[in-house]
């Protein structure tokens, strides 16, 4: 009875001793590179610098590589924003709320796949505070 449990217990931990380090290593290595590593950046072309931000809370650029277009937004180190998210919209926000057509793209500091849109607004929104932190217009040629 107890010996069976103990044997099963040991088996569990032999399996865990393999799986847990694998999960740990996987989780650490899959972190997004922020910002681009130099070797990755060289493979991309800058197609639009995002400016002017209304409150200078972030900087950003739209990049192009052989695999598509990407957006990179980096928050100003001094701007402490809880749970920031990046949205795209055809219109500028006129209040603290997101415009109705706003679509979630990703989180700042990561490499975000950029949709095939030529113009609009990129919005940094704090989910924790439920308010627009900053936004910037963009204009790029369509692919």
């Amino acid at each position: 009875m107890i010996r069976t449990h103990r044997r099963r217990h040991l088996s569990f931990f032999v399996v865990l001793a393999v799986l847990v380090p694998v999960v740990f290593t996987w989780s650490i290595t899959r972190r997004q590179v922020v910002p681009f590593a130099e070797n990755e950046k060289s493979a991309t072309r800058l197609i639009a610098k995002l400016d002017p931000w209304q409150k200078k809370a972030a900087t950003g650029e739209i990049l192009e590589s052989d695999t598509g277009r990407f957006l990179q937004i980096v928050l100003n180190p001094d701007s402490r924003i809880a749970d920031p998210l990046v949205y795209i919209s055809s219109q500028a926000p006129n209040s603290q709320a997101l415009p109705n057509d706003a679509r979630l793209l990703g989180i700042p500091g990561t490499l975000i796949t950029f949709p095939d849109l030529s113009s609009g607004y990129l919005i940094v929104y704090s989910l924790a505070h439920e308010q627009v932190i900053d936004f910037v217009p963009f204009e790029v040629k369509q692919l």
Binding site: R6, L10, V14, L16
Partner: peptide, 11 residues
């Protein structure tokens, strides 16, 4: 993991 494996092997 180390504690459980040591205790298990010893037992």
């Amino acid at each position: 993991l180390t504690l459980h494996l040591i205790a298990g092997w010893r037992e």
